[in-house]
């Protein structure tokens, strides 16, 4: 699942992740949409890529609410706001990617967190 307010970055994530073998089951433009979307999923995503600075509800608040729904939710932060890293990690984020980051590092990080060998062809549900 992708939570990102920038349309262009949403598009890039979509191209990057699908070409890396992941399925994207949901795209949210802000934290509030993300929480509502997460609630609506019957099958929860394996990983959530979460931006922080978004309108209506930010990534930290959305994380807290998602964790209340599912304390095992796996969230990777991808944000240009470096000052939020500590807080995000303390809330249980798997990792914090500071924009601008390499595509490969994001993909490897997702695989690592999902227990998939790097460059493996095994497909996992993303978000």
């Amino acid at each position: 699942m992708i939570v990102e307010d920038e349309l262009s970055i949403q598009k890039i994530y979509k191209i990057l992740l699908t070409s890396s073998g992941f399925d994207i089951i949901g795209m949210a433009k802000n934290g509030e949409e993300a929480v509502n979307m997460y609630k609506s999923f019957l099958k929860k995503p394996d990983i959530i890529i979460m931006d922080h600075r978004m309108p209506v509800k930010d990534g930290i608040e959305a994380t807290k609410e998602i964790q209340q729904i599912d304390k095992h939710a796996k969230i990777i932060f991808a944000s240009a706001d470096i000052t939020t890293e500590k807080l995000a990690m303390s809330l249980g984020a798997l990792s914090f990617k500071i924009k601008p980051f390499d595509n490969e590092r994001l993909i490897n990080n997702i695989k690592e967190k999902l227990g998939i060998e790097p460059f493996s062809k095994k497909v996992k549900n993303l978000i």
Partner: peptide, 18 residues
Amino acid sequence: FTHDINNILQNMKSSMEL
């Protein structure tokens, strides 16, 4: 500015890599 420029860079970097 930092936030926006980093997002711009992210867009460009990821796009270029892809």
